[in-house]
Design a protein around this nucleic acid. Structure first.
Lengths: 226, 226
DNA sequence: TGTCACGTTTCCGTATACCAGATTGCCTTA
DNA sequence: TAAGGCAATCTGGTATACGGAAACGTGACA
């Protein structure tokens, strides 16, 4: 054979890292049906590597919940039932709400200013329908909130969680007027924060996240099926 | 030497798993000062294994944040500043509070009954000062709350977080009358839950966790120092 | 016909040896 | 003394091998 679809793109970085990314994409794209057992040797051949980096990549995927390792019985692709995806989104919503609450009480005036600036800047992209730009500003908005908690550990956890959900969220903002509503909701969260009402900011953030999740509810209706 | 302190205890299970546990304990106990670079071959010799399972164990530790991997420059023991430990405990407190709130609204009568039963059973161990038994019941209490959220993902996250902090919490309950106060606080949380007041249950849980963290505040004042 | 035991096969977990490349520390040189 | 170069060292990765546990298939027995 030609050595399979070797992971040559981005020759830099650790091989295990590249394999991890490739596997993440493959799983998210549905190349491996949920419940499939992944053979280490097969994957090694497929990516033109040896078992070692493949194993390493699989452990990392297990750590982020994409696969499940049953000792001595192989690695299986995790089941992403609608129930489970819902659980993940709810958890994300609650964590975001938590960050919003803490950030309300702890952000410095400078940080708050930067956050408002981000929000203002997003107006253009909404008007022009520039989803990519809005997506970037949206991410920046949420990450600014994480940082605003002044709790580095929580910020890391929130970010990791957000990235784990990114795979399911890709097409989210494309739907209807979701982008308008999203920005409006950001504004409402900011308003609560400006009033120093962390609890209300948290509630609005939770609603914001859950609404975003609902926006792709139909999309996740039957994802990992065969 | 005699081949090092081979990881013979608990002959069952994966070698990499046992090494991971040994390293976790060693790091938490301060055997490796923060910032130390860990030599794979040295560790392999120390635990009487080859580099392969050691590498695997180190990756797992990296995933749980105990060590940091700098590509091609080795693995270093993560810095656990009081600030960072504080951040972790705060995050844990907030997550526990979140679980308490959701569990209040979602537990079935059966689950609630089991929780109350757990609480009742802990009375004996408090009276006799049986810290180990109380520790077990305490863990069961919190895990019952996780399950009570009816959110499997959140439950997993909460449990993982709790276990990451376990290393820093070992001696916590031994201090003074902490065990009495701990049980009292559980009772107060239960009371709020029985009234269906999730918000109050959350506030009490948060306070409970933060108080527990404060109980070992002096202990973590200067942990990983030399 | 269903089930249980037994042998076979597959594949994971681990060991070992080795290599290339990067990093580091030391030593030489200007 | 500072800069530059060289050698030792260690990691990331490859290749290979092997014991053992789990899965699988087969055939005997109830």
């Amino acid at each position: 054979m030609d050595g399979g679809e070797a992971v040559e793109s981005a020759e830099r970085g650790l091989l295990s890292e590249r394999i991890r990314n490739a596997l993440t994409d493959a799983i998210a794209a549905g190349d491996f049906a949920a419940g499939t057992t992944l053979d280490e040797q097969l994957l090694a051949d497929r990516y033109g590597a040896s078992r070692t980096p493949v194993r390493e990549a699989l452990r990392q995927l297990a750590a982020s919940g994409l696969v499940e390792i049953r000792p001595r019985r192989g690695v299986v692709v995790a089941q992403f039932t609608p129930q489970r995806i819902g659980d993940m989104f709810e958890t994300s919503a609650e964590v975001e709400a938590l960050c919003a609450r803490l950030a309300t009480y702890r952000m410095t005036p400078l940080e708050r200013g930067a956050l408002i600036d981000l929000h203002d800047r997003s107006a253009d992209s909404v008007a022009t329908g520039d989803v990519d730009t809005y997506d970037r500003l949206n991410r920046a908005f949420h990450e600014a909130l994480y940082a605003g908690t002044h709790n580095g550990f929580l910020a890391e956890q929130a970010l990791a969680l957000r990235e784990r959900l990114a795979a399911f969220r890709r097409t989210q903002l494309r739907q209807g007027d979701r982008i308008h509503r999203s920005r409006e909701e950001h504004g409402e969260i900011l308003a609560a924060m400006s009033e120093g009402d962390g609890e209300r900011a948290a509630r609005r953030m939770r609603a914001h996240m859950l609404r975003a999740a609902a926006a792709l509810g139909r999309y996740i209706a039957g994802p990992g099926a065969e």
